[in-house]
């Protein structure tokens, strides 16, 4: 959910509101309300972003997974690439912008993926490879559970349902 930049979401919403929805509205009052929404969204898009704490959690859990994987790989005598090892450290997260946090999260995720692929490539040399993968999945599970707690019941039927009178 938090992969698309917030500014892009607002751009998409406003583009559709202005170009798809507004031309179909006949009431000037309703059109006015619609453009008020567009205006508010336009003004907040540079001032808001995803929750800092959630992004930081994602990065921290990513580094936990990375630590687990590096330990297992090193134990088996497998050489770790720089892409993997350097992702254990990163910039100060407290002062990072939303965009910087997204970039850092992508970097850590890519490193975890690379470490998982390395583990998979050396599976015959690592007797407990699947156990390590299960541990990593368990670590990832914390954030998956968190995201499920944030998920609201979707009402897609309201998007798809055709007007009965049509």
């Amino acid at each position: 959910m938090m992969d698309t930049p917030f500014t892009r979401i607002v751009e998409g919403l406003n583009h559709t509101l202005e170009n798809v929805v507004a031309p179909e509205i006949e009431s000037p009052v309703v059109r006015g309300q619609l453009f008020a929404v567009v205006e508010i969204l336009n003004q907040i898009q540079g001032r808001f972003d995803y929750r800092h704490d959630l992004m930081v959690q994602d990065i921290q859990v990513g580094r936990q997974m990375l630590t687990t994987l590096i330990e297992a790989l090193e134990k088996a005598g497998i050489e770790i690439s720089e892409e993997i090892s350097t992702a254990l450290e990163g910039p100060d997260l407290l002062g990072a912008s939303g965009e910087q946090l997204r970039e850092e999260r992508s970097r850590v995720e890519a490193a975890v993926s690379a470490a998982l692929d390395l583990l998979d490539a050396h599976r015959p040399d690592i007797p407990e490879a699947e156990k390590v993968e299960k541990t990593v999945l368990g670590q990832l599970g914390q954030n998956i559970l968190r995201d499920m707690m944030l998920f609201r019941r979707q009402r897609f039927d309201r998007i798809s349902q055709r007007d009965q009178e049509e």
Binding site: S106, E109, S113, D117, E133, L137
Partner: peptide, 14 residues
């Protein structure tokens, strides 16, 4: 652009 998500990598390898 989502292939490097650790969960995806775990799943594809499995």
């Amino acid at each position: 652009g989502f292939r490097k998500k650790p969960l995806v990598t775990l799943a594809v390898n499995w």
